[in-house]
Measured scan of single mutants.
Amino acid sequence: TKIIYHMDEEETPYLVKLPVAPERVTLADFKNVLSNRPVHAYKFFFKSMDQDFGVVKEEIFDDNAKLPCFNGRVVSWL
């Protein structure tokens, strides 16, 4: 699974690849690859589809939650 993530106000996003199927990747999986960053200091928002509003940034805080996936990749903002 490819996860593209944006940090603070930085213009260029980062990319990490996880050896987990897109439909199975969790917030804990993502946090594990960010071990060099203080993950407890961040809120995690993900590109998600809402039936009422369309594409939104959804906050996910449960480490066991599966991450929303679009075209085989996850897009996140920290």
Score class of each variant (00 low, 15 high):
1 T>K: 05
2 K>T: 14
2 K>F: 15
3 I>R: 01
4 I>N: 00
4 I>S: 06
4 I>W: 08
7 M>C: 11
8 D>Y: 08
13 P>R: 06
13 P>G: 09
13 P>V: 11
13 P>W: 14
14 Y>D: 00
14 Y>M: 15
16 V>L: 10
17 K>L: 14
17 K>T: 13
18 L>N: 00
18 L>A: 10
18 L>P: 00
19 P>A: 10
19 P>T: 06
20 V>K: 06
21 A>N: 12
21 A>C: 09
21 A>T: 09
22 P>F: 13
23 E>C: 07
24 R>K: 13
24 R>I: 07
24 R>P: 01
25 V>K: 02
26 T>I: 02
27 L>W: 03
27 L>C: 00
28 A>V: 05
28 A>P: 04
29 D>P: 02
30 F>G: 02
32 N>H: 15
33 V>E: 10
33 V>Y: 09
34 L>S: 01
35 S>D: 11
35 S>R: 12
35 S>Y: 11
36 N>V: 11
37 R>V: 12
37 R>I: 09
41 A>F: 11
41 A>H: 14
41 A>L: 09
42 Y>A: 08
43 K>C: 05
43 K>T: 07
45 F>S: 03
47 K>G: 07
47 K>F: 07
47 K>N: 14
48 S>V: 14
48 S>R: 15
50 D>G: 14
50 D>Y: 07
50 D>R: 15
51 Q>R: 11
51 Q>D: 11
51 Q>V: 11
51 Q>Y: 08
52 D>N: 11
53 F>A: 14
53 F>Q: 15
54 G>I: 15
54 G>L: 10
54 G>V: 12
55 V>W: 12
55 V>D: 12
57 K>R: 14
58 E>I: 14
58 E>H: 15
58 E>L: 15
59 E>R: 12
59 E>P: 06
59 E>G: 03
64 N>W: 04
64 N>V: 00
65 A>P: 02
65 A>E: 09
65 A>D: 07
65 A>Y: 05
67 L>K: 02
67 L>W: 03
67 L>N: 02
67 L>S: 01
69 C>R: 05
71 N>K: 10
72 G>W: 02
73 R>W: 15
74 V>S: 03
74 V>T: 03
75 V>R: 05
